[in-house]
């Protein structure tokens, strides 16, 4: 007995400090930059942090995803009045649509303390205690009610630090969600990480009238055991390198340029007789090559697509290819007349 007490008294008794940070920014790039800054600049071994945040309409894709496969890229600017932004986060996982009806939660810990199930159970517990609604954690670390998903999961693990984040659908606009994530029928070949499509549900369907503020308060309280939350405006706390990170996250090079190499193939008619089969290879988001498969006898000059090389890829590039081929066909026709 005595020995046991001695052992206990010698054991390092260091309670882990906890902080709940509530971001006052609703800009996806600002929040992602602040999240990244915390991850790279703080130590979490003795001080765990939960960051709660909410964004204006956006689609957030995983670090190694292809935006043209995951989001309705051409229509995003028209979906809401200010458009739906596209962002690439630094963690893995799949694509999500979110707006001010979503609550994002980032659990920062040391890598050793990283425990996704533990965090997800905390969320489920907070909802169950306050609203009596049962949320379960499935084997993919999604939060589900019945067979519908209310949140996914993504994480980033470093040498010492880690974070796990997820986004709860509280009362998000499901019409915008479907449109923003509308699956395109483009023929893309890639080894980029692809999202698993699932049936989704807003918590408001089960808990009418639920607000982001209520939920934020309840989860914060479950985490901290008090309501001593810190409200932060990342804009005020920004140091120069956080601004730089935000600008990087907002840039075309980050969002689109980081797309894993892919090829996209399309067949289209040049006239009633000629059907062209075009394959474009895209590296770092830029056109690396344009190759013609079946040209049905259309003779195409070498180097006809040279001007397209290194251009930022955009779905409209197929129109440019079609125009070039059409011109080539006209040229052939004219030379035959002469």
């Amino acid at each position: 007995m005595h020995r046991t007490f001695r052992f206990l008294s010698q054991a390092p008794v260091q309670a882990i400090k906890k902080t709940v940070l509530i971001s006052q920014s609703h800009d996806i790039y600002t929040n992602l930059a602040y999240e990244d800054w915390l991850y790279t600049h703080q130590e979490f071994e003795n001080h765990n942090v939960l960051m709660l945040w909410s964004n204006d309409p956006c689609v957030v894709i995983g670090r190694y995803q292809n935006p043209w496969l995951e989001a309705n890229v051409p229509e995003l600017p028209q979906i809401t009045q200010n458009g739906v932004l596209l962002a690439r986060r630094k963690s893995g996982g799949g694509a999500v649509y979110q707006d001010r009806g979503n609550l994002n939660l980032t659990f920062f810990t040391s890598k050793k303390q990283y425990h996704r199930k533990h965090n997800l159970e905390l969320i489920a517990r907070a909802v169950h205690k306050n609203y009596g609604v049962k949320i379960t954690v499935n084997d993919r670390d999604d939060l589900v009610i019945g067979d519908s998903k209310v949140s996914g999961t993504a994480a980033k693990l470093g040498r010492l630090n880690a974070y796990h984040h997820c986004t709860l659908l509280v009362h998000a606009n499901k019409t915008n969600l479907s449109r923003a994530l509308h699956k395109q029928r483009w023929n893309i070949q890639t080894n980029a990480t692809q999202s698993t499509r699932s049936k989704v549900l807003n918590l408001s369907n089960e808990i009418p009238g639920i607000t982001i503020n209520d939920l934020l308060w309840m989860i914060g309280y479950e985490y901290l055991n008090t309501n001593d939350f810190q409200y932060i405006n990342p804009e005020d706390n920004f140091s120069a390198n956080v601004f730089a990170c935000r600008d990087e996250l907002r840039s075309w090079d980050w969002c689109y340029g980081n797309t894993p190499k892919f090829t996209i193939n399309k067949s289209f008619p040049i006239d009633c007789k000629i059907n062209c089969d075009v394959t474009i290879t895209v590296e770092n988001g830029r056109i690396a090559s344009v190759d013609l498969g079946n040209t049905a006898g259309l003779v195409v000059k070498e180097g006809i697509f040279d001007n397209l090389k290194n251009c930022q890829f955009d779905i409209n590039v197929f129109d440019s290819v079609a125009n070039l081929l059409f011109d080539a066909k006209e040229l052939v026709a004219k030379s035959k007349q002469v």
Partner: peptide, 18 residues
Amino acid sequence: QNDECGALESVKAASELF
């Protein structure tokens, strides 16, 4: 030595490579 030089993605997590 110990620099981050890449990453591996598995089960929704991006793990830095050193």
